[in-house]
Design a protein around this nucleic acid. Structure first.
Lengths: 341, 341
DNA sequence: TTCAGCAAACTAAACGATTCATCAGGGGCT
DNA sequence: AGCCCCTGATGAATCGTTTAGTTTGCTGAA
């Protein structure tokens, strides 16, 4: 059992014949310490490989330099990218990150929030589960003075900073692109109308059509329930059986787009010649399907970065985050599935 | 600024007219406290929502109930699954997890290890970066008595517990499956021979051929450098231009398999009729390519679980982990790309 | 010469929980 | 009655660091 005991401030002080407080101040470059002493202590610390005991520091300062990050699903291109961005920003600013996933269950989310409190993180970033309808468990954090930043799936009436994807413009640009490619009858596989993202994307879709002088048809707008590949398949089938089938489909998600393309390929409908497809999310698989799938990139990495940045800024200024919403711009990635010229 | 001050043991003691130590012992169900007092204290704590200050406990006990987890790449199906498994196990046993990624760079790995030490995690799980050739930065942890568990990409001569995929049997089963499907000339797109996984998979490939009485041909074994889709494409082209081209390809990775299939589809070679393909990793995209890709699932979730379990067991027993290697069995997922009957 | 002023160092308290060593009091035993 | 032992409770030390408050000693001005 190695357990090589770490050297402490006390050891330094004793060996150098100074007091513990002097050693502490010297290392932290506090005022009221001579340059000589500072050098002396720093050299000694360096040489003896002094590492301050973080637990003691945390305890004393009542800060941990640790942030909590709660996501619904970890094995997910979008969320792992968000985490990646948050980790990068946190690292840059000297913080570490405690990660937890809820599997889209409220009870896990509450548990995670409690755990974060217990681990005394300085603040948290969270993307809410689908089940979450109120934020009592987050209020507990706020009441303790630990700031919260919501991202992606947020609760509007919870007074915290929020970072969300610019779904409206993402959808708007995607549909406008389809129009520019010459598609005339564009359908939209949308999601639940009680989910914000779905609402915004639908709004963007409609606005793009309107702005281009195209009419919106109700039968071209279908709402998925569980946003699965199967639904993409089934609803595309429905769409293509309409008396006046669409010549392009804007899908709420790449997964739905996969199902959509699967059906079309089975029926030997040519993509993009006969029907154009654009997805949303830009999963890595968009590159690997045939034809490759055009998609709206949500810049998840940037979202993680931004959320983390806001959180740390809040911690630094000491103000308990303002209730501001930040939009992350999307980027349309055009691939084969929608390029007709 | 809310900052509702938490109640402390001292408060409880004062209000109840007992000593702090009695309160502490009562809450921790120590011996030598009457049942009456225990009930009294527990009820009071419950009522006033007492939460022990974790930082103080950590400090006092020199334990954090926090584990470190270091992976090369977070945005990656395999690694995010590992993390997911580790988080699940950690949660089950009351631990939290600090996550960090190295982007396959040694310098980041060293930094991450340092950060973990500084954050005083109780122990860490790590999958090494490609650049890592020695484990000095991990020895620092071991010397502090913090156990380390290596997984996936490991350094054999570092005396820690290791959890790795059973690459040999995974490859063996994949190739045997191809043989059973009637393929006779099976090629293998392998990786670097200084990476353990590659060596093992190659060994499994050869053994399967030998056991089936088939001969191994050198020109059927190609070593990729960066294991990319492009390489899969290029090397498959090379293979198919041989005077005696293979009728099946076992690819070191799904990504390589993607490239392989891309080439074959472009040349209108029928998969699986003319050429069978099996990949390794079972990425989610294996389900979305056409035809769907047979692949060896590495059970990443289980690997994370196992690594975490070993780590926590080590912590509980207090022994600094034995140098044992645990193999995680693989599972062959047969899809269209290799099913000929 | 004396003392205000200041820099540099020190002492000690504090953070909140755990735990070792101690103590009071009561019951049982001789 | 005197002694021991046991139970239930207490006091105080401790973990390593930070920091408020104080002391020391020196310089330079009155």
């Amino acid at each position: 059992m190695p357990d090589k005991k770490r050297i402490t401030l006390k050891d330094i002080a004793k060996d150098l014949g100074i007091s513990v407080s002097t050693a502490s101040r010297a290392l932290n470059s506090y005022s009221g310490i001579s340059d000589d002493t500072i050098k002396l202590v720093k050299d000694y610390a360096e040489k003896h490989n002094y590492v301050p005991n973080t637990m003691a520091v945390n305890f004393r300062k009542n800060k941990t330099l640790t942030l909590g990050l709660i996501v619904p699903e970890l094995v997910h291109y979008f969320f792992s990218s968000v985490i990646s961005g948050a980790l990068a920003e946190a690292k840059k600013r000297g913080y570490t990150v405690l990660v937890s996933q809820t599997e889209e269950l409220l009870k896990n989310e509450i548990y995670a929030a409690r755990t974060m409190i217990a681990s005394s993180v300085d603040g948290i970033m969270i993307s809410l589960s689908n089940e979450t309808k109120d934020g009592d468990h987050l209020k507990e954090l706020l009441e303790e003075g630990r700031p919260v930043v919501q991202f992606d799936k947020v609760l509007d009436d919870l007074p915290t900073a929020k970072v969300i994807v610019d779904d409206f413009n993402g959808a708007y640009n995607a549909v406008t692109h389809l129009i520019n490619q010459g598609y005339q009858s564009i359908a939209h596989l949308n999601g639940h109308q009680d989910v914000n993202n779905s609402v915004e994307r639908l709004r963007g879709y409609k606005q793009a059509l309107t702005d281009a002088g195209l009419e919106t048809k109700d039968e071209y707008i279908i709402h998925c329930h569980d946003i699965s590949e199967q639904e993409g398949y089934d609803f595309t089938k429905d769409l293509m059986q309409l008396p006046d089938p669409p010549d392009a489909i804007f899908c709420i998600t790449d997964l739905v787009a996969m199902g959509s393309m699967k059906f079309l390929k089975e029926k030997e409908v040519k993509i993009p010649d006969q029907v154009g497809i654009v997805g949303f999310s830009n999963w890595d698989m968009a590159n690997f399907v045939t034809p490759t799938l055009s998609s709206v990139d949500q810049q998840a990495f940037k979202m993680g970065e931004k959320a983390c940045q806001i959180l740390i800024d809040t911690l630094k200024t000491g103000e308990l985050g303002k209730d501001e919403t930040h939009l992350i711009p999307t980027e349309l990635i055009v691939r084969q599935s929608s390029k007709r010229d």
